[in-house]
């Protein structure tokens, strides 16, 4: 089983890379770019939701804030688009410092509500500051400058933008599997215990929040450059909701599940829109409810569990750990008997 597990990782990675590179051949290239951006956004949110145990309902502030920041940098300074995208990510990370500082001390639903409230404030500012952001019209005419190269064809721009997404996904993976990531998981599972071990829990949460926001910003900035404009919709609360939905659909705490969830949602939205169906929320919402009820752990999480269960059935050796635990379990019964 260990062998197959070792082999599975590179195979999955290869499959993911092939899928990422083949995407604009299979579907409409601008939609492919949307999927890539949303995949990174969902993975960045999962860093917080799945690995730190914080449900942010305000990540539109970072995705959308970076969209505007990247757009403004590109419009006003005419710099190559990577500079604008990275500038957007940096803006989102900086914006996350005060927001995170004021919200990470809260738990559960209170954290969700406060992040939502901050995101609504960002929305308000963007909507009101018309001179800068264009208000309801959005920020238009964002160029895709890259040393005079012609990137106007979405097919080619996909390959220009993809490295940022892959880099961002790699960063999320790296963070989750770092010493820092280990502390995050311990905080998620048992914050009081982490504190008793000497970890300043809130500061760790704050850094996780800032990193998650910066990576969401990387995705949002790229999205704005890809579309050639930043719209008010990017900072609206439904964008936060859709990101949470992508993570839940794919599987919380699965990292790659969020990318699958994002692909499902973006593709479905696009399909419904081209079919002339206007009530997309009705359909995506319905599918969301079905998936959450049927696949408790999301699409990817459920698939992973099934594969693990099958592998465990095939090789009896894999079951020994749990068997050993059960043998020792009478310990516990003595307890209740006392």
């Amino acid at each position: 089983m260990i062998l197959s597990k070792l082999a599975a990782r590179p195979v999955l990675l290869l499959f993911g890379l092939v899928a990422a590179f083949a995407l604009p051949w299979l579907i409409y290239p601008p939609v492919a770019m949307d999927i890539a951006c949303w995949a990174l956004f969902a993975a960045a949110l999962d860093l917080l939701l799945g690995f730190t145990g914080l449900l942010s309902f305000g990540h539109a502030a970072f995705w959308g804030g970076a969209a505007y920041a990247a757009g403004l940098i590109a419009v006003h300074w005419g710099v190559p688009f990577p500079v604008a995208v990275l500038g957007g990510a940096l803006f989102a990370a900086v914006l996350a410092v005060p927001i995170g500082y004021l919200s990470v001390r809260l738990r559960g639903i209170y954290f969700a509500m406060v992040t939502l409230a901050f995101a609504q404030m960002v929305y308000f500012v963007v909507n009101q500051w018309r001179d800068l952001t264009g208000g309801e019209n959005g920020l238009q005419g964002v160029p895709r400058e890259f040393f005079g190269m012609d990137l106007s064809d979405p097919f080619f721009f996909y390959y220009a933008g993809l490295p940022f997404v892959l880099l961002g996904l790699f960063a999320v993976w790296r963070i989750v599997r770092s010493p820092f990531g280990r502390v995050l998981v311990s905080i998620r599972d048992n914050p009081a215990r982490a504190q008793a071990l000497g970890y300043p829990v809130e500061r760790y949460k704050l850094l996780a929040f800032v990193l998650s926001a910066g990576l969401s910003g990387l995705a949002g900035g790229l999205y704005a450059i890809s579309h050639g404009f930043a719209s008010l919709h990017e900072v609206y609360w439904t964008t936060s909701g859709q990101a949470v939905m992508a993570v839940v659909l794919g599987g919380i705490g699965t990292l790659w599940g969020g990318a699958i969830g994002a692909a499902l949602i973006v593709e479905l939205n696009d399909y419904l829109a081209t079919a002339g169906f206007t009530e997309t929320g009705l359909v995506t919402g319905g599918i969301f409810v079905v998936i959450v009820l049927v696949f408790r752990r999301g699409v990817w999480g459920t698939a992973r569990d099934l594969i693990a269960a099958r592998a465990a059935r095939r090789s009896p050796a894999a079951g020994t750990d749990s068997a050993a635990a059960q043998v020792e379990a009478p310990d516990r019964q003595e307890v209740t008997a006392r």
């Binding site: 790296r174 770092s178 010493p179 820092f180 982490a194 970890y199 850094l207």
Partner: peptide, 29 residues
């Protein structure tokens, strides 16, 4: 305890606390 971590990982965390290494999000675990 941290349900998902092994006893060895628990102890690593407890021991790493003072070293500053646990802030390094760019390093392998």
């Amino acid at each position: 305890l941290f349900a998902q971590l092994t006893p060895r990982e628990h102890l690593q965390l407890a021991l790493a606390g003072g070293s500053g290494i646990t802030w390094r999000f760019w390093r392998s675990d």
